[in-house]
């Protein structure tokens, strides 16, 4: 995952931002606890969101305690109790996806970067091994995604939906997995909740894949890399990007609307309704501005 799923701080209340930060710091600590102090460096906003979604399903809200940040001793952090599996699952997803991303980067990076990646690969591999032992489903899902992605990109007749499907399916499976590990709060029913989360995960995965593709479009065009928006020659590419991103976000919001609201509702809505919209507007504006100057 790529770090696009974050909150819009300006539109959050102080207590909401504190709660979100608490989850972020706790996930960072969990990475250090479960894997290594260096594993804390792969902490991402996407996995923080994943942990928040998991915590939203629990009966009891997390209890926060004050502590100090390992990287910045002047900063005070709020750490949540880590009895719930939410953090452990999110940490496992972080290291597993980081490992596969690294392996993918090894294939198409310049030589100097490849040397660096080769040096850190053994660490990532050992963390991944540890995480996969705990949650084999996550490892299986992410590795399947990488294979399917490669397959889709090599397909001559690949279409946008097909290219976005592996990432979307992976996140759908990851969100569905939460219902297997997290004891659900009242009145959530397992079957329906699983389906809602899967559907929301699919839409969000699709959005993540597409926004990353939008962001990389110029680079991919220059290097002749695969990009789903370059598959057919669209007349108005920025509008096409916008429509597809809106559609995915809208689907995620519709699915989420069926879940009974809980403690993080306002933060989740901040992510879906404000932050993601701002991010996509910012990225697409690069292309619409360029188009305007061309015209």
């Amino acid at each position: 995952m790529f770090g696009y799923i974050k909150v819009d701080q300006a539109n959050l209340l102080g207590k909401e931002f504190e709660a979100y930060n608490g989850i972020y710091c706790t996930l960072c600590r969990q990475l250090g606890k479960d894997y290594s102090v260096f594993a804390r460096l792969i902490l991402s906003y996407d996995c923080t969101f994943y942990a928040m979604l998991a915590l939203d399903l629990c009966e009891q809200p997390p209890c926060y305690q004050e502590g100090r940040c390992r990287f910045n001793p002047f900063k005070k952090c709020h750490y949540a109790d880590t009895q719930s599996l939410a953090f452990s699952l999110a940490a496992a997803l972080s290291v597993i996806s980081a490992y596969y991303k690294l392996r993918d980067n090894l294939l198409d990076s310049p030589w100097y970067k490849r040397i660096l990646y080769r040096l850190v690969q053994p660490f990532f591999a050992s963390w991944r091994k540890k995480a996969a032992k705990k949650y084999p489903e996550i490892d299986e899902s992410v590795s399947k995604m990488m294979d399917r992605q490669l397959e889709a990109e090599q397909d001559q007749n690949c279409i946008l939906d097909q290219a976005a499907d592996p990432t979307a399916t992976m996140l759908s499976e990851m969100c569905g997995l939460l219902t297997e590990y997290i004891p659900l709060r009242e009145p959530l029913q397992k079957d329906n909740t699983k389906r809602i989360l899967q559907s929301m995960g699919y839409a969000m995965g699709r959005w993540i894949y597409l926004i990353d593709a939008c962001d990389d479009l110029e680079k991919d065009q220059k290097r002749h890399n695969f990009n789903p928006f370059l598959l057919d020659h669209r007349v108005d590419l920025p509008a096409y990007m916008q429509a597809n991103l809106n559609h995915a976000l809208s689907d995620a919001l519709l699915s989420y609307g069926l879940l009974d609201k809980c403690r993080y509702d306002s933060i989740i809505r901040n992510v879906l309704c404000v932050s993601c919209v701002n991010i996509q507007t910012k990225i697409i504006s690069k292309y619409s501005d360029a188009k305007e100057t061309e015209d």
């Binding site: 279409i159 939906d161 499907d165 559907s199 429509a243 559609h247």
Partner: peptide, 12 residues
């Protein structure tokens, strides 16, 4: 069918 699969672009 495509919409229910999440393949929005085809569905559209």
């Amino acid at each position: 069918i495509f919409s229910r699969k999440g393949w929005n672009d085809q569905a559209y």
